[in-house]
Amino acid sequence: MTPSESQRTDVQLIRDCQSHDQAAFRYLVERYQATAFRFAFRLSCETMLAEDICQKAFLRVWNYRLKLNPEARFATLLYTIVSQLWIDETRSRNRRPSSKDSIDLNQDLISNEPSIETISHNQDLARRIKRLSHKLPPKQRLVFTLRDLEDLSIAEVVQITGISAGSVKTNLSLARRKLRQQLQAITGIES
């Protein structure tokens, strides 16, 4: 992105996208793909799946660009779409038994030929996240990731997930308790 292009606000870019300007959409993708990928990865712990969710999220944004409100925060919309796509993926995986939960080094190599450092970094991070959060049900995991890892406010989490503030706090509390219990089990801290 050139300096002048980077100064264009999200509102301007969305308005241009609504005028079928693919160049503006490209800038939007470059600006937010890291956010979308990071969030998708923290939920799924798989690089390929995170990339796939990221692509589908931006495709959905493009398909519904005419219905977007340019004044609304684009990041919130992206979080909402990624959350929905991850939940759909989780449900479809629950319906068809497969062994896709394990980290596959070969898949990572095939997808975009990433470097060894990238692969090992992502695998290590996935291992740490899974070690603590694999027992969390999807809703608690989603709320915890949005609030504690993505550092969003309760109001934003409510907007993204569509559940009430009370329910968000309850799920967050349960998620943190389970993570602490898991942490105790791993580190061996006794009360």
Binding site: Q22, F25, R26, V29, E30, Q33, A34, F37, R38, F41, R42, T47, A50, E51, C54, Q55, F58, L59, W62, D108, S111, N112, E113, P114, S115, E117, T118, H121, N122, L125, A126, R128, I129, L132, S133, D148, L149, D151
Partner: peptide
């Protein structure tokens, strides 16, 4: 857990999104 993952190939990801569109 808050460490950011690395996107394997950001340019390729952008290009694949635009190609799909």
């Amino acid at each position: 857990m808050t460490m950011s993952p690395h996107i394997p190939n950001p340019e390729a990801l952008t290009a694949s999104i635009l190609t799909r569109i």
